[in-house]
Design a binder for these strands. Structure first.
Length: 989
RNA sequence: GCCCGGAUGGUGGAAUUGGUAGACACGCAGGACUUAAAAUCCUGUAUCCUUUAAAGAUGUGCGGGUUCAAGUCCCGCUCCGGGUACCA
């Protein structure tokens, strides 16, 4: 075998060895402590893996390998979140079954992952679209369906315990503490003893108010383009996260999961988690707990009372009107005859505005007076009731008490409609209440009867006390978190295991699972607008009852997959008790922060639920979580213009005497010269060096992404690009000429004829043509180089644009490492000589630093440390086995292939993964002297070597005799001499 | 608007509890080897003044402060990135 460093041979050899020897197969091993390292579930997209994906995978792989060397039994699995929209969209376009697309994508992912040399235990691979797997997703759904949340015991229980309670006690409605806790829910009243007299339908409808998986009419994010509803976290800026299609609010009957009952626990348990503070903050904000009071305002001439939620009950005396959301259920009812038309028009207007529009003009105030009045519960005064879309139907009660003096939104509304502004809190003299409201939760109460003189905080509790005593309201906690919509009107997802009998939703029996996804002819809604599953032929429960036609959302399968990895093949349970007990939970979870409010909240929710039912031993999925930064792409772009929008471009027509068009052509005018085209050009692309032609007109350019494979150092390959992107009929204008239909016409002006692009940092994505895959890098430099380089780029959690600048240095390092074992002619040069102090020092410095770095997830500095060590050993001409053997082990988590090869070359048996991480010995680092930096007034001037045991007084004497110090002293006596052992000497003059 | 993170040479970045700013690498410049190239190796490389060297001055986004000593701590800003958004 050639003894050059040949990454192609080495990496192929060891990847085969690992498979043949099942090196990474993990078993429950009671003898060793366990450690569970998990990467966030990838969705296998058609674009394959780009260089950003492996960043986290490499980090977790290094960590896993390190933990193994430290004697842990490491579980490090990988699998696929295989259901999802893109495969289905592709199916709609091409008719290809999403299962086929998914399978192909997974195959490609797997090839790409394999070539990087990860230590995944592939025998545990799971795919959410596999019936073996989704059987258990459906099983958990049934458990959710059969459970309710008991607010007294603070956990999920079987629905049976609720039925028992209802039989005995009935339900006193929304205020029933036993049933609702303090969570805002609408519950109908039920007298004791009535339960048994209800029909089955009535009973089931009632239970739907409690089931953790329930069917209810609610406002959903409807995406017409995708033909489905989306969860809140799947909507970004009013458009769908996948695809960017508009989303509107719609009232629909939907399956939802009652995540809101877990709000308090999801919030509190964050404190125990070793997750990044910013991620925990995101979850806290998303849950959005706020405490305050609900207050009832009786309507004038009515028995109805409008309930509002406020966090500022202290400002009750400052209420000058109420505002209802346009969707509030009483709007039509309370509107006066005179206002009817105006209100109806306004409600229609508000409803038709898409979410995006509503968000776009947050600043614009709109609303209408309902004509109704409410009675202020404390003052008895009449106050008007308005309708305004700044009030959200989905939060609180959909109604607010407006305190314009102390709430900026109420202030803007009051200003716009000339409503009174009543001050109830003293403001600093610098604050002008005519200009803006005083929203601060501080100050003394005024104009507020019994609250006068109290501080805001005291006033809040005093008021709540007062309201409760008088029966006008009560203290209340609200959460921003909404229940999660669970049904999707799509094909490629888990069928919901429910059928309908006489209008009642009935669950399948557990032994009837999995409910298989049926085959259909087209992946589109039916003619009658039902979801695609409506197309399935003869798909009925027991041949007669309709199944639920919506499927589960993408996050269903990913909400519990960490459990399945513990025991993936188990046919009788989601995982065996033994495996669940041994592996417990994820010790280190690695993934992007974009999952903060979606996946990471749902997986915590399901974990807590399964824990409540006693099915698993832990109530949190992951102890520690690290976010890796995003690797962005560098896009290449060309400025573009609709040709007719430039003065350089003309359409010239010639007419005969009769006025008929006899000849026409298109032309470009440059420097007074005319260039003709026979047919109409589609676009005008402008090179960065040709912008001066537009100086006088300054048009608004648009931009087009150019596939980065057609760009070399900002020079665009025009024929390649125009063909691949279908711009055959476009003009490409450069400073010195232009391309049209594959031909170049020179202006002959001596200016550059190159088509120059400009660069922009963007998210790496197929649609931006800026994707860099790891494949070519692995091919050219090898997986070990890729692994080291991705770590060398910088701190793991930092986002950065991809650039291969610098990869050479890392590759050179591996070649230099190789040179410690083989000389330039490929001769083995390792010897058994006794290592010397300097060599041991270099090695142990490295052992210590790399160990610390991995524990701190500071992988970039480890790579530097390796480089320093190899450079030092090179300088020392050290080829000693005693040193190199340990070095190979320390390097192996980062660059496993070369480490295996060198390990074997050293004559060691088996895989380097079975070795032990060398133990750091501080003795080798003990120094007896130190070259002290000598500072004068804090500025470094010189260095003097002293023994580390040197007496400070002796040091001071020597320092003051030093030539350079004497020069700076200029004959003066020093005021002070600071001596810090092992650090510094500072002379103060 | 609010919450979080960040700003250090031409570039990526390093710098323990405050203690030699710029490790390591890229790039660049010069040199060695070679017929030549690649590869490899050696030297230099924050900025400014200076022919060079020595020596010095400046220097971690900006303005203040604490300290013998500040990239690091405190106060006030600017800009960039991410999240979130009428949440009452």
């Amino acid at each position: 075998m050639s003894k050059e460093y040949s990454h192609r041979d080495i990496e192929k050899k060891w990847q085969k060895y690992w498979i043949d020897n099942q090196t990474y197969k993990t078993k429950e091993d009671k003898e060793r402590p366990k450690f569970y390292v998990l990467d966030m579930f990838p969705y296998p997209s058609g674009a394959g893996l780009h260089v950003g994906h492996p960043l986290g995978y490499i980090a977790s792989d290094i960590y896993s390998r390190y933990k193994r060397l430290k004697g842990f039994n490491v579980l490090h699995p990988m699998g696929y979140d295989a259901f999802g929209l893109p495969a289905e969209q592709y199916a709609i376009q091409t008719g290809q079954h999403p299962a086929i697309t998914t399978k192909e994508n997974i195959k490609r992912y797997r090839e790409q992952l394999d070539q990087i040399g990860f230590c995944y235990d592939w025998s545990r691979e799971v795919k959410t679209s596999d019936p073996e797997y989704y059987k258990w997703t459906q099983w958990i759904f049934l458990k959710l369906f059969h459970s309710w949340y008991n607010p007294i015991s603070q956990k999920a229980e079987s629905i049976e315990t609720l039925i028992n309670h209802l039989e005995k006690n009935g339900c006193s409605g929304a205020g029933d503490q036993f049933l609702s806790g303090n969570v805002e829910t609408e519950i109908p009243k039920l007298e004791p003893g009535v339960w048994k007299t209800l029909s089955e339908k009535e009973q089931q409808d009632f239970l739907m108010h409690f089931r953790l998986a329930y069917l209810a009419e609610s406002f959903v994010n409807w995406c017409p383009a995708l033909g489905t509803v989306l969860a809140n976290d799947e909507v970004k800026d009013g458009v769908s996260e996948r695809g960017g299609y508009p989303v509107e609010r719609k009232l629909m009957m939907q399956w939802s999961l009652r995540i809101t009952v877990y709000a308090e626990r999801l919030l509190n348990d964050l404190d125990q988690l070793d997750w990044t503070e910013s991620l925990k903050d995101s979850q806290r904000n998303w849950i959005g707990k706020s405490t305050g009071a609900s207050v009832f305002f009786p309507l004038k001439d009515s028995t109805k009372k409008i309930e509002v939620f406020t966090t500022r009950p202290d400002t009750l005396y400052g209420v000058s009107y109420l505002t209802l959301a346009p969707e509030h259920e009483w709007v039509a009812e309370i509107t006066s005859a005179e206002q009817k038309q105006a209100v109806e028009e306004y409600v229609a207007f508000a409803k038709n505005r898409s979410e995006r529009e509503r968000m776009a003009d947050v600043k614009k105030v709109s609303g209408v007076f309902s004509g109704a009045f409410a009675i202020h519960p404390l003052t008895g005064k009449e106050i008007p009731v308005w309708i305004g879309d700044y009030v959200l139907a989905g939060y609180g009660t959909g109604a607010v008490m407006a305190v314009p003096a102390h709430d900026s939104r109420d202030f803007a509304f009051a200003r716009h409609f000339n409503l009174p502004i009543l001050q109830v809190i003293e403001t600093p003299s610098s604050h002008d209440l005519n200009e803006a409201s005083w929203d601060e939760k501080s100050g003394k109460l005024i104009n507020s009867d019994f609250l006068n003189g109290l501080e805001v905080k005291e006033a809040i509790s005093a008021m709540i006390h007062h309201l409760e005593a008088k029966g006008f309201g009560k203290g209340k906690t609200n959460y921003r978190l909404r229940d999660a919509i669970f049904g999707r009107q799509r094909y490629w997802g888990e069928p919901i295991p429910i059928y309908y009998k006489d209008g009642i939703a009935c669950p399948l029996k557990e032994e009837e699972l999995p409910l298989l996804l049926p085959e259909i002819d087209k992946y589109l809604p039916t003619e009658t607008g039902e979801p695609p599953l409506g197309r399935a032929k003869d798909w009925k429960y027991q041949g007669k009852y309709e199944y639920e036609l919506s499927t589960m959302p993408g996050w269903a399968g990913s909400s519990w997959y960490f459990l399945r990895y513990m025991d993936p093949g188990n046919p009788t349970a989601l995982a065996s008790e033994e495996a669940l007990k041994y592996w417990q939970q994820v010790d280190l979870y690695l993934g992007g922060s974009e999952h903060a409010t979606g996946h990471l909240l749902y997986v915590r929710f399901w974990t807590k639920f399964l824990f409540d039912l006693g099915l698993i031993p832990v109530n949190e999925p992951a102890k520690k979580l690290i976010n890796q930064g995003m690797i962005q792409g560098m896009s290449e772009k060309l400025k573009k213009l609709e040709p007719s929008r430039s003065k350089l471009y003309n359409v010239v027509g010639q007419t005969n005497e009769k006025g008929d068009l006899v000849d026409s052509y298109y032309e470009l005018l440059i420097d007074g010269k005319q260039y003709k085209f026979s047919s109409r050009p589609s676009d005008l692309f402008i090179s960065e060096n040709a912008l001066h032609y537009f100086e006088s007109e300054k048009p608004e350019f648009t931009a087009s992404n150019v596939d980065i494979s057609f760009v070399e150092k900002a020079v665009v390959n025009v024929p390649g690009f125009s063909q691949a992107h279908h711009y055959e009929n476009a003009i490409f204008l450069t400073a010195g000429g232009f391309w049209y239909k594959g031909d170049f016409t020179s202006f002959g002006n001596g200016q550059s004829e190159e088509m120059i692009s400009y660069q922009e940092v963007e998210k790496m994505s197929k649609s931006k043509y800026n994707v860099v895959t790891p494949d070519s890098i692995v091919d050219h430099y090898g997986a070990d180089t890729l692994r080291l380089y991705e770590m060398f780029l910088g701190p793991l959690e930092q986002s950065k644009p991809w650039s291969t600048q610098g990869i050479e240095g890392v590759h050179r390092f591996l070649k230099r490492l190789w040179r410690l074992f083989y000389d330039a002619d490929g001769n083995w040069i390792v010897n058994d000589n006794q290592p010397e102090k300097a060599e041991l020092k270099s090695l142990h410095k490295t052992i210590r630093k790399v160990g610390e770095d991995i524990e701190n997830f500071s992988f970039n500095t480890s790579v530097s440390t390796f480089m320093i060590c190899v450079n030092e050993l090179m300088d020392l001409k050290c080829n000693k086995r005693a040193i190199l053997k340990d070095l190979v082990v320390v390097v192996s988590p980062y660059a496993p292939h070369i480490a295996e090869e060198l390990w074997q070359a050293l004559g060691e048996q088996g895989s380097v993964t079975e070795a032990n991480f060398p133990v750091f010995n501080p003795e080798f680092l003990v120094e007896d002297s130190f070259s002290y930096p000598i500072s004068i007034n804090g500025k470094h001037r010189t260095n003097i070597e002293f023994s580390l045991n040197a007496d400070p007084k002796e040091v001071e004497k020597t320092v003051l005799k030093d030539e350079i110090v004497i020069k700076w002293l200029e004959g003066k006596a020093p005021k002070k001499v600071i001596f810090v052992k092992g650090k510094i000497v500072n002379v103060v003059i």
